[in-house]
């Protein structure tokens, strides 16, 4: 199995932590991991992008049109990173509603059979008093929709493994919240493409 994931956002949104979650998940599945991360100056509020490739790969970078999944934690960064998605891929974006998304770009995505799922992860995370956990909320949401067949229990196990002690409780809460929201919307996927 080979799977390519792009995680995009801006410095401070927990992109590198999310990348760690997926790579440990891959390792748990016995897969080879290869990927690439942004460190340094860009982390001061600039664009941050992580490439993650599970399975047999040599290059750490994902080519345009090759990614299976894009997690975008910020709207504009979504537009900048959509090019990575392959036809038939899925994009999960931290956005209140797909209605806010550019209509012409949505049309192109539809042609390429790329699914776009918007969820206000920041809003949800603020409800549990931790905006910084929006990344985990969005990942939990994606699992809840059933479009990405990760087991909730596996994700929970990995979070327990990689979270700092003081963040663990809130991370698990964020995961649960996102997961339930994802499950709820999948029963009524009216807003999806």
């Amino acid at each position: 199995m080979r799977l390519q994931i792009i995680l995009a956002g801006i410095g401070g949104q927990g992109i590198l932590f999310s990348s760690k979650v997926f790579s440990e998940l891959g390792l748990k599945m016995g897969l080879d991991i290869m990927g690439s991360e942004t460190h340094g100056m860009s982390q001061r509020g600039g664009s941050v992008i992580a490439h993650l490739k599970l399975g047999k790969f040599q290059s750490p970078l994902i080519r345009n049109g090759a990614a299976d999944i894009l997690y975008s934690f910020e709207e504009n960064e979504t537009y900048n990173t959509l090019k990575f998605l392959k036809g038939g891929g899925i994009c999960f974006v931290n956005l209140e509603s797909v209605d806010q998304f550019n209509k012409r770009i949505m049309k192109v995505l539809k042609e390429k059979e790329i699914a776009l799922r918007a969820f206000d992860a920041t809003g949800a995370a603020s409800k549990i008093g931790s905006i910084r956990s929006a990344n985990i909320v969005l990942i939990g949401y994606s699992v809840g929709t059933g479009l990405v067949a990760i087991k909730y229990e596996d994700l929970k196990y990995v979070l327990e493994l990689v979270s700092r002690e003081k963040d663990l409780k809130i991370n698990l809460k964020a995961l649960e919240l996102g997961f339930q929201e994802g499950k709820r919307t999948s029963k009524n996927p009216g807003k999806s493409l």
């Binding site: 799977l3 599945m29 899925i90 699914a115 479009l147």
Partner: peptide, 18 residues
């Protein structure tokens, strides 16, 4: 519309890791 689930579940190789 859109693709079906992307396989991302644990597989048998998990045990072969170590």
């Amino acid at each position: 519309m859109g693709p079906g689930p992307i396989f991302f579940g644990p597989d048998k190789r998990t045990k072969m890791k170590k």
